[in-house]
Design a protein around this nucleic acid. Structure first.
Length: 736
DNA sequence: ATTAGGCGATTTTTT
DNA sequence: ATCGCCTAAT
């Protein structure tokens, strides 16, 4: 295999196969290419593919890398173990589950599931969720687990009341998961460590197995991940980590930059190779990124350079408000597509928070620009999807009490709190899982007839499908189950737009199951559930679709686009307000901005809005300090020539004035009076006497409008249900 | 005892 | 958008 098209450092990184290696790879320095060739090279010199373990940040990255390697060195290289930490070790845990007291069909709890468990524990312990925020407790527990702290260690260290309560919840939480035969995301890293440390034979097996280990995006690994790879790598020390401290953006999730320092301590013979030549960006873009990141102290010194031409200046778009920002960007997209002869798929719009996507989407939709959005409200988080998944989970893992509780009374079977408590008490007394307790529900004393009936129906359903599970395909089973519980019929009958969308989501889930089992031979429901739990937003990104891509700066990591818009460069947004207090967090925000900048190949835009609607409130924003940190000579300012400052009119402007003709809308620049009371895309154009459509109540007529900003309300006379007083912020009315 | 419906609070980023 | 908490209806 010829490496002649790689530069000297890249070649060295590919060829240094023995011993510990750290590749410090600046953005656009051909990191992925190096990893790909390195693995291909290993196979080329006779290392069997199954002896290679490569850990990536997303499954998508793994799949792409794998296909390229297969192209380079052929089909047998499919045997490489490659994927995210979570998916690779989930697989290993299934094989070894019994050794740590689990069953191989364990459930994986996502963050939402975990939150549910925590809330449930709080209420059963009589701890006030008002006083002790379940989100905060979840994050404390997760942090503790990331730091490899056991419950006992955490309890000992807990000082204040909050930590003491957390320790109590933590203890119960761990027991609960164990009892449910379930693991959370952190367990997928911790349990393998536990397995390896407690079981020398198993450890040796995997150390022999994975003789060559590669870790991508090393700067974003947490302590548990570090410890885990150390267990595997410490014997042969053929470990290569690739990363860039300047692109570390997951400290909030436990990523720990200490890993980079510890690596050199734990593997003293580490060879360090720097990839400093950038092949992606123009000189201007690279220089801007470099100037920005220099404001962070303690970065590993790097001299990034490029042979690429200087290219265009970076354009800063000064926008009146978030809506103007969207419109301006659309205009600029058209301009750049023409100028650079590009497709829509070459353009990405990035933002700090998911909620910013809405005003951007509005503008794109209004101008008929196709777009795809990465993440957002995720499919697998939709209520109806989670409900069906819970049914499947309880079938796969009978001990999964939380999955059972989720759907025990869905659809309604007359089973309320009291009935559930009786069931739980009975299960507790007899040390049974809830599913097993249900089988004996006749023995539970003091149940109403309705509850008795409900338990019986649900239990019969469960037993029927449990028996079917090994006999029919995953696809047949889920379809039949969904039919039997009748939710599709219910959604159809309800007939509202919302119910219809739920109907579609359930159908889509069923298709996803068919598709998955068709694509993955020998896999069934259990495998599907694992896959569904561990998919990342970007995993679903289809680059071939010709559409503008919208995503968070976090999701953008590892990607590149000819034209990039980074939006919302405002104090309090980028950097995000909550992050401006602690320097550490401010530095992370800066790195996040750095990641965004370095995604751009040819042309970069920054935008900010002087007025932005956040949480329904109008706020005056000032431009981000990060813009100040980029030298003026790299930047051209554009957008509004004159800043007129305050809104020219109050939010009480009569609604009729706010109706702008389509013509005005598409040239939404300096002259047109903007809409200051936003609320909803549609919200600002509401007017007394207008006919509207609501997703649940159907058609109606507006009788009155009151309030402003966040609390803008309308009294609407609906054809179906009569008068309602609705908050426009949530009503999502369509004008007719 | 259970359900339906209203109201307010919650959304930073995510494997 | 969804969840928890409350009240009223059944």
């Amino acid at each position: 295999m010829s490496l002649s098209h790689l530069n000297a450092q890249q070649q060295e990184a590919v060829r240094s196969v023995e011993g510990p290696l750290m590749v410090v790879a600046g953005p656009g320095s051909g990191k992925t290419r190096v990893m790909t060739y390195r693995i291909a090279h290993l196979i080329g010199i006779g290392v069997p593919a199954y002896r290679i373990l490569a850990l990536t940040f997303t499954n998508k990255a793994a799949n792409e890398m794998k296909s390229r390697i297969v192209q380079l060195v052929g089909e047998p290289s499919r045997q490489i173990r490659m994927g995210t930490f979570h998916s690779v070790f989930a697989r290993i845990l299934r094989t070894e589950a019994e050794k740590i007291g689990y069953q191989r069909n364990f459930s994986i709890y996502d963050e939402t599931d975990v939150l549910g468990v925590i809330k449930d524990i709080l209420s059963s312990f009589g701890i006030s969720a008002q006083q002790f925020n379940p989100y905060a407790i979840r994050s404390r527990i997760s942090n503790a687990k990331n730091q490899l702290l056991s419950v006992d260690e955490y309890a000992q260290k807990s000082l204040d009341l909050f930590e003491q309560k957390t320790a109590i919840v933590f203890r119960e939480y761990q027991q609960r998961l164990k009892r449910n035969n379930a693991m959370d995301f952190d367990d997928l890293l911790l349990k393998p460590i536990e397995l390896f440390r407690g079981n020398t034979k198993v450890l040796e097996k995997y150390q022999e197995y994975f003789r060559f280990i590669l870790v991508d995006e090393f700067q974003d690994t947490n302590r548990a991940q570090y410890a885990l790879i150390h267990e595997l790598a410490c014997r042969y020390k053929n470990i290569c980590v690739v990363g860039d401290d300047a692109q570390s953006i997951y400290a909030f999730r436990g990523a720990d930059i200490r890993n980079i320092l510890d690596f050199q301590r734990d593997y003293p013979e580490t060879k360090i190779i720097r990839l400093e030549q950038n092949y992606r960006c123009t000189g201007t873009i690279l220089s801007a990124a470099d100037h920005l990141i220099k404001h962070n102290p303690d970065q590993i010194a790097k001299d990034l350079w490029t042979q690429n031409p200087g290219g265009d200046l970076i354009t800063v778009l000064d926008c009146r408000d978030d809506r103007d920002e969207g419109e301006t960007i659309v205009t600029r997209i058209f301009e750049q597509l023409q100028r650079l002869k590009l497709d829509l798929k070459d353009v990405a719009i990035m933002y700090r928070t998911n909620s910013q996507s809405r005003s951007l989407e509005d503008a794109l939709r209004k101008n008929s620009v196709p777009y795809t959005i990465v993440g957002g409200v995720e499919f697998y988080q939709r209520k109806e999807v989670k409900d069906v998944l819970a049914y499947l989970r309880i079938l796969v893992n009978r001990q999964d009490n939380d999955a059972l509780l989720r759907v025990l009374n869905y659809p309604a079977r007359g089973l309320g709190d009291v009935a559930v408590s009786r069931l739980e008490a009975f299960a507790g007394e007899h040390s049974l899982s809830l599913a097993d307790a249900l089988v004996r529900s006749k023995e539970i004393a003091g149940l109403s007839k309705k509850a008795r009936e409900g338990f019986h129906v649900f239990s019969a359903l469960l037993e029927k499908y449990s028996a079917l599970l090994p006999k029919i395909t995953a696809s047949e089973l889920s379809r039949s189950l969904v039919d039997e519980i009748g939710i599709l019929r219910n959604f159809k009958e309800e007939g509202t737009t919302e119910a219809l969308s739920r109907w579609e989501n359930v159908q889509e889930l069923l298709s996803a199951i068919s598709e998955f089992t068709a694509d993955h031979e020998g896999s069934g429901l259990a495998e599907f559930l694992e896959d569904a739990a561990l998919v990342a937003a970007v995993d679903d990104l289809d680059e071939n679709r010709n559409a503008v891509t919208l995503m968070t700066l976090h999701s953008a990591k590892g990607l590149e686009y000819p034209v990039v818009f980074i939006t919302g460069l405002e104090e309090g947004l980028l950097p995000l307000y909550t992050s401006m207090i602690e320097t550490k967090e401010l530095e992370e925000e800066r790195r996040l901005c750095y990641v965004g900048i370095t995604r751009a190949m040819k042309k970069l835009f920054f935008s900010y809005a002087r007025i932005r609607y956040r949480f329904g409130e109008m706020t005056y924003q000032s431009s981000s300090r990060f813009l100040e940190e980029i030298p003026d000579e790299l930047v051209e300012k554009s957008g509004r020539q004159r800043y007129t400052g305050l809104p020219e009119r109050s939010v009480h402007t009569p609604a009729w004035r706010r109706r702008s003709s389509p013509d005005e809308d598409s040239h939404y620049h300096s002259d047109v009076v903007p809409d200051y009371d936003h609320g909803d895309e549609e919200g600002e154009r509401m007017n007394v006497g207008m006919h509207v459509e609501h997703s649940v109540f159907g058609r109606g007529k507006i009788l009155a409008i009151s309030g402003q900003g966040e609390s803008l309300k309308a009294v609407i006379d609906f054809d179906s249900v009569g008068r309602k007083n609705l908050l426009l912020k949530y009503a999502h009315l369509k004008t007719l």
